[in-house]
Amino acid sequence: MTSDAPDIHTLSGAYALGALDADEAAAFERHLESCAACRDEVRSFGAATASLGEVVETPAPDRLRAAVLAGITEIRPLPPHVAPDDPSTSTTGSGEELALRRRARDRRSSRWLQVAAAVLAVVAAGALWRTVALTQQVDTVTATAAAVSTVLTAPDARAVTGVVSSGGRAAVVTSDQLGRAVLVTDGLAPAPAGSTYQIWYLDSAGAATSAGFVPAGEHATVLLQGSPVGAAAVGVTLEPAGGSAQPTTKPVLAVAV
């Protein structure tokens, strides 16, 4: 599953057109993380696909304008990205630095709370546009975000949260109706060199089925492979790079779903 098929590079066109299904798009995005040529190619297709979009015009109904302009009054535009503090670059511990690190940590946890709040708001309200609050947290590329919003806005979506023992937090949103689940992480500690975070569905007997991998990075939103239907819990373990057929370490996260 993790070893890329030899012809995966040819998926760049289908990916740029939005023509991959959620699993394939997620797999291709994992490939993009390690393939600069495909990243460049996908970027280079952006203007071409957009010009396909530009040539279809239809006058919009007046009520759309009214609805949009009413809608924005209730939404705060996101703040700009600012250069992140990196506490790991400093090893000294003056009072000022400690205060800075604490503020950085606080910011991270409040960012987490925003994510969690967004997920819960979506679940509670079922309001489609609120997924924007979550999807903006998702720095992954478009197709996954689309599949993710489908899960988050499912009428039966449920969210559970947990602490990752190696550092960070995570939320799992499941929809039995769609048979899909999404894992959101925040402040996740980097996996040690040569290892990777692998996600599992666990049934009530404790049997594990791989549900994919958490991409590198402090914040990630992952559409899990396979269906949560019948799973009792979602777990995450540290596994050797490339993943394992079955968990080989104690879970760093386990939440009942």
Partner: peptide, 14 residues
């Protein structure tokens, strides 16, 4: 279209 516009508004900084 409405959802997209609200996302554009929200993400305009990005």
């Amino acid at each position: 279209a409405q959802e997209a516009y609200l996302e554009v508004w929200r993400q305009s900084t990005r």
